[in-house]
Structures are given as structure tokens and as C-alpha cells.
């Protein structure tokens, strides 16, 4: 461990900026997973595979078709929205109907099946070669000795826009209110006349769109590859567990926390320590705050 580095303010600040950029990425990754769990109670193991599909969509639209990056990212999100809606309607919704209250375990198995299927499909169709882009945005700047890439700035701004947009959607739209109501009391929501099947489809599609768009946004960091989603799934799980299952905003904060820890650990410790430190943080959270750092309850729901 090289703690001496922490005596240099510029180095500390550089670690902070790097960690913030990285953490925002992790937060974005976890938000879709948290949204689907928070509303439907379903842990979507295909979350990483949806990210992978998002990276391929971005690559296809941006590189093969030559569409500008911002539009390609939106296309990736829209594509995953449609895929998520179709999968929920054709696979998950019938399962929920057949199994009643006991559908969740079967739902987990189904999403694991989806993960395996999508990864193998990508391998067959796209082959074992990665497809990426060098940069989303070229260039960087230096502020008081701290290097900031424009790409990180873009990711950060997008993250803020996504968080604010999702908050506004949930707060001010009829569908957003219905999603919140359904997550709290599905039977009472039905008594209001809300078709909760539609709400679940919209929620799953929205969670899928979030991770698909993030796949597009992060194509330069995570090039399209059949198993690229494995690391994303792991990171998403970590931020969701640390933040508190089902809490979308907590996932973002936990992502930033994770990014900062990772950045400082990488800076001062030898290679290999950073994953151990992250794992230790997760274990500590599970022991002392099993419901997550930002959950109001102490025990897991």
C-alpha cells in the first residue's frame, strides 16, 4: 500500500474525479436492476445480457449505419425497451399468471435462462470478437492539475439527466404514480382500476431500456462482446446490495461510493487489492446493514 500518495492533494483529487466518473457508470448500471426489483420483486439475472445487447445495438447503429452517437444511444435504449416489453409479455407475464404468488423463483430461473440464451445467441451471430469504438467524445482538459476527459463529463451529465428524468417520470406522470402504487400495494392498485400487468410490462421494459442505453453509452469502455455483461451484472448486484434492494436512487449513490473506493484502492494498493477491498465492503454492508446503506429498514425486506 502506498499511502504516501494520499498526501498529494492533486493525486487525491485525481482519484476522486476518476472514482466519480467510474462510480456514475456503476450507478447507471445498477438503476435498471434496482427498478425492476423494486417494482416487480424480480431479480433480473439477464440484466448483464441486456447490457451486452445494448452495446451491440449501439455498435450496429453508430458504426455500421453511421448514425450520430447520441441518436445511437437512444436507439439502443428504445431497442431494449421493445425487447424487454416483448420478453415480459411473452415469458414473464404468463409465468406470473400460472404460478400466482410463487412465481418469483421460477422468474429467477427464467432470467438465468434468458442470460444463457442471449449470450450464446450473440456468440453464434457476432462471433467471439469484440466490437467497440475508441471514444464517445474525444479530448480532455486539465483543471488545477487534474485531468478530466470529456467522455467522463458526458457520462456524468447523462447520469444526472437520467436520474432527474426518472425522478420526474415517477413523480409527475400518471404512469409513474401507477408504478409506485403498484410496487406498494398491487391489490389496492387494481382496485383503482390500474391494469398491473401493463405496469409490470412497462417497468420491465423501462429497466431494460435503462441498461440498454447504458450499454450504448459505455461502448468505448465496454466493447460489445458476448460475455461483456458478466462484469456489469456483478457490478450492478454490488451497487444494488450496497444501496438497498429496489431503491433506484440509492443504487446511484452506492455506485458512486463503489467507484470512489475502487479508484482510491487502485491508486494506493497493488493490483488485485481493489477487488478484495470491494468484496470486503460488500461483506461489511451485509453484516452491519443487511438491507443496504440507504434503506430505512435494518433487515433485508
Amino acid at each position: 500500500m502506498n499511502f504516501e500518495l494520499l498526501t498529494y492533494p492533486v493525486v487525491v483529487a485525481q482519484f476522486f474525479v476518476d472514482g466519480l466518473g467510474r462510480g456514475v457508470m456503476y450507478g447507471l448500471m445498477g438503476m435498471g436492476l434496482a427498478l425492476i426489483f423494486g417494482i416487480m420483486g424480480l431479480i433480473n439475472f439477464a440484466h448483464g445480457a441486456f447490457f451486452m445487447v445494448g452495446t451491440y445495438l449501439m455498435y450496429f447503429v453508430a458504426v455500421q449505419l453511421g448514425v450520430p452517437f447520441p441518436i445511437a444511444i437512444i436507439a439502443a435504449a428504445v431497442g431494449l425497451f421493445c425487447i424487454g416489453a416483448v420478453l415480459e409479455r411473452t415469458l414473464i407475464s404468463p409465468l406470473r399468471k400460472r404460478m400466482g404468488e410463487n412465481w418469483l423463483v421460477d422468474g429467477y430461473v427464467m432470467t438465468i435462462g434468458l442470460l444463457i440464451m442471449l449470450e450464446n445467441l450473440a456468440l453464434i451471430v457476432m462471433g467471439p470478437r469484440d466490437h467497440g469504438i475508441a471514444r464517445l467524445v474525444e479530448g480532455r482538459t486539465m483543471i488545477s492539475g487534474i485531468i478530466v476527459t470529456y467522455e467522463r463529463v458526458v457520462v456524468f451529465v447523462v447520469a444526472i439527466l437520467v436520474v432527474l428524468g426518472l425522478a420526474a417520470f415517477m413523480r409527475y406522470t400518471n404512469i409513474g404514480r401507477a408504478i409506485r402504487a403498484t410496487s406498494e400495494h398491487p391489490d389496492a392498485a387494481m382496485a383503482m382500476g390500474i391494469d398491473i400487468r401493463k405496469i409490470y410490462t412497462i417497468t420491465f421494459a423501462l429497466g431494460s431500456a435503462l441498461i440498454g442505453g447504458v450499454g450504448g453509452l459505455l461502448l468505448s469502455t465496454y466493447p460489445a462482446f458476448p460475455t461483456i455483461g458478466s462484469d456489469v451484472l456483478l457490478k450492478s448486484f454490488i451497487v444494488v446490495i450496497v444501496g438497498g434492494l429496489g431503491n433506484v436512487w440509492a443504487a446511484m449513490v452506492a455506485g458512486i461510493l463503489l467507484g470512489l473506493i475502487e479508484s482510491y484502492a487502485q491508486g494506493i494498493a497493488a493490483s488485485g487489492w481493489q477487488n478484495s477491498i470491494i468484496a470486503a465492503v460488500v461483506v461489511a454492508v451485509l453484516v452491519f446493514r443487511p438491507a443496504g446503506l440507504f434503506s430505512k429498514s435494518v433487515s433485508r425486506p
Binding site: 406498494e184 400495494h185 391489490d187 392498485a189 382496485a191 383503482m192 382500476g193 391494469d195
Partner: peptide, 22 residues
């Protein structure tokens, strides 16, 4: 239930049914 309720049937279920965070 959502269809029945949309037709003009209102239902107060047993226990509290407000959406507490709303």
C-alpha cells in the same frame, strides 16, 4: 379487478390500502 373497478365498482379492502409513500 381493474376492469370491474373501471366499470363503476369501488372497493375498500380489509386493512389499510393507502399508498404510503405517495
Amino acid at each position: 379487478p381493474d376492469v370491474s373497478c373501471s366499470l363503476g365498482i369501488a372497493y375498500l379492502m380489509e386493512g389499510h390500502s393507502v399508498f404510503p409513500s405517495l
